[in-house]
C-alpha cells in the first residue's frame, strides 16, 4: 500500500500558540480517513498545510513525494470550511473557474451534482444560504478527479437527506487511486464511510486505528470511542 500523504514532525505556531505540535503521520492511497477532533484541535491548520496554503512551518509535508506547492495543488482537492469564492461569482462562474484552472475537473460530473442538489447556474454564490453553499462547494470539489481530497467539515449546514446524497457521491468519487480525508466533529454521520481514523487533540495525534477494529475489539461506535478518548484527554 503506497503512501499519498506523509508528515514528519509538523509544527506550526500562531503567535505563541502551537497549533500543530509535532505531527508525524501517514495516509495511504485508496482509503477514506476520518481526521477527528474537537474544534480548535488543529484539523484545519493541518489540512491547510497539506493544501500548500501555509508555508511557514517546521517539519515536512510530502504529498506523493512532493513538497506542497504548485504541483501538489494540481492533485489535491481542498474543501475549506468557509466561502472562498469571489463575491461577484455565480455558480456558473465557479464551474468555469474550475474548468479553466484544474485539468482533472470533470465539468459534466459537477453539473450533474449541482442539478441533483437543485442549484441553479445563475444563482449568485454570495446570496446562497448556508446549506446551499455547503452543497455547492461539495458539488464543485467532487467534480475534480484528485488524488487526495481534503474535506474540512463538509457536513456543516447540510440536512439529513442531502447528507446521504453527499456520502453517496463521496463513495462514487472514491477510487483505489485516490484518498479522501474528512475532517469533522460530526462523527456519527461518517461511521460507515471511514476505513481508518486519526484523532487529533491540541495539535497532537492521540490515536490511530481502523474503524472496524474498534467495533470488533471494543463493541463501540467510533463516536462513542471518540467521546471516551477525549473525555480522558480532557482530564489528563
Amino acid at each position: 500500500m503506497s503512501v499519498i500523504l506523509k508528515t514528519n514532525n509538523l509544527i506550526k505556531y500562531y503567535d505563541e500558540k502551537k497549533a500543530l505540535d509535532g505531527i508525524s503521520i501517514e495516509f495511504e492511497i485508496g482509503k477514506i480517513y476520518g481526521f477527528l477532533g474537537p474544534n480548535g484541535s488543529g484539523k484545519t491548520t493541518f489540512l491547510r498545510a497539506c493544501a500548500a496554503l501555509i508555508k511557514k512551518h517546521e517539519g515536512e509535508v510530502l504529498i506523493d513525494g512532493l513538497k506542497p506547492g504548485e504541483k501538489t495543488k494540481a492533485i489535491v482537492a481542498y474543501l475549506p470550511d468557509y466561502n472562498y469564492f469571489f463575491d461577484w461569482m455565480k455558480v456558473k462562474d465557479a464551474l468555469s473557474f474550475f474548468d479553466d484552472f484544474f485539468e482533472d475537473f470533470d465539468r459534466e460530473k459537477s453539473e450533474k451534482l449541482l442539478a441533483d442538489m437543485e442549484l441553479e447556474h445563475e444563482e449568485k454564490i454570495s446570496k446562497l444560504s448556508k446549506g446551499m453553499l455547503a452543497r455547492m462547494k461539495l458539488a464543485i470539489i467532487l467534480g475534480r478527479k484528485a488524488k487526495l481530497y481534503l474535506l474540512d467539515e463538509p457536513f456543516d449546514g447540510i440536512d439529513g437527506v442531502t447528507r446521504e446524497k453527499i456520502i453517496k457521491t463521496m463513495i462514487s468519487t472514491f477510487s483505489k487511486e485516490s484518498t479522501i480525508i474528512v475532517a469533522t466533529h460530526h462523527i456519527t454521520y461518517v461511521e460507515k464511510l471511514l476505513d481508518s481514523v486519526k484523532f487529533l487533540y491540541k495539535g497532537k495525534i492521540i490515536d490511530e486505528f481502523d474503524a472496524e477494529d474498534i467495533r470488533r475489539d471494543k463493541g463501540m461506535t467510533i463516536n462513542e470511542y471518540y467521546l471516551e478518548e477525549f473525555r480522558d484527554a480532557e482530564t489528563d
Partner: peptide, 8 residues
C-alpha cells in the same frame, strides 16, 4: 453506493 458504506 447503494448502502452508503465504504467500498473497502
Amino acid at each position: 453506493e447503494c448502502m452508503g458504506v465504504n467500498p473497502n
